[in-house]
Design a binder for these strands. Structure first.
Length: 157
DNA sequence: GTTGAGCGTT
């Protein structure tokens, strides 16, 4: 039977990359304005604008969505749009604070390497093999080589 | 009424 797809059972691996970093905000822009603006792209669960001591906004804020997909959509949609008379820059969160807090339940030998924001692999390898190799299209994988002896030099063609 | 680099709190 289907093991996934229905039933909103959050087994735990579902809370990642929901927050967005919004910068280049106008000084008059408040967190309510952000929430109202990002509301078009999804359900904003949390919105905050950093302020100084006098209450003046620093020009950047944090917006959290109900789903990570909405956050990505907001970045591609509201990024570079006009808000408060100024062009805002929407970006993904640099750190996953929420993810770390979620994993705090199981500490010890369980060393979580790096969630890395879940690979956006579209389509699952149906049949055998990780993926259907497409000629001329990058697989997305990266290769890291280290430990190269100094006797090796660059060869420019 | 001003200015413009930058990731915050539970």
């Amino acid at each position: 039977m289907a093991a996934e797809g229905q039933n909103g059972g959050d087994d735990g691996m579902m809370r990642i990359g929901k927050r967005c970093y919004v910068s280049n905000l106008a000084w008059k822009t408040s967190w309510q304005d952000l929430k109202d603006k990002f509301r078009e792209c999804g359900q904003v669960v949390y919105a905050n604008v950093t302020r100084g001591d006098d209450g003046r906004s620093k020009g950047w804020g944090i917006v959290e969505f109900e789903n990570p997909d909405e956050a990505i959509a907001a970045v591609n949609t509201l990024n570079g749009t006009d808000l408060g008379g100024r062009r805002i820059a929407v970006r993904e969160d640099r750190e996953d604070r929420d993810v770390k807090q979620s994993l705090e339940g199981e500490e010890g030998a369980a060393a979580a390497p790096r969630p890395a924001r879940a690979p956006r692999g579209r389509g699952r390898g149906r049949g055998r093999g990780p993926r259907a190799p497409i000629e001329g299209e990058p697989s997305g994988f990266q290769v890291c080589v280290q430990g190269i002896p100094w006797k090796f030099t660059f060869h420019l063609f």
